[in-house]
């Protein structure tokens, strides 16, 4: 996730927290009861859901990006595995030992 997106996500989380605080104290600047309870309730709910939507949107986009990256990496790994011969032709008078453990899995062949 980029730095800007991370900052916006954290800001959205803080705004949600502040909206909950305002709704519980029935004021935006407790202990002063300002503005009216009705206004605090309406504005608090709207702000909370706005911040919630922004945060969810950013987290969902990050999830999509990560899932795409993972599926691309899995496909790339599949391609790479097909490039590595499963069995090597034996060479008379020579012995061959190979291994190609990837960052995620391991395999060994020998002749």
């Amino acid at each position: 996730m980029s730095r800007a997106k991370r900052v916006v996500t954290w800001a959205a989380i803080l705004v949600q927290g502040y909206a909950i605080y305002a709704l519980m104290t029935r004021s935006f600047v407790w202990p002063i009861l300002w503005p009216s309870v009705r206004t605090v309730f309406i504005v608090g709910i709207v702000v909370f859901y706005l911040a919630y939507t922004v945060m969810n949107g950013l987290l969902a986009s990050e999830l999509v990006r990560k899932t795409q990256l993972e599926s691309e990496q899995a496909a790339a790994r599949k391609i790479q595995r097909t490039l590595i011969p499963e069995k090597l032709e034996p060479l008379p008078s020579y012995e061959i030992e190979t291994t190609s453990p990837s960052a995620m899995s391991a395999a060994t062949t020998s002749t």
Binding site: S93, E95, I96, E97, T98, T99, S100, S102, A103
Partner: peptide, 14 residues
């Protein structure tokens, strides 16, 4: 530390 793929080939002459 194994973040990259590794390939090792050993060929020995008898």
């Amino acid at each position: 530390l194994t973040l990259d793929d590794v390939t090792i080939v050993l060929v020995a002459r008898h």
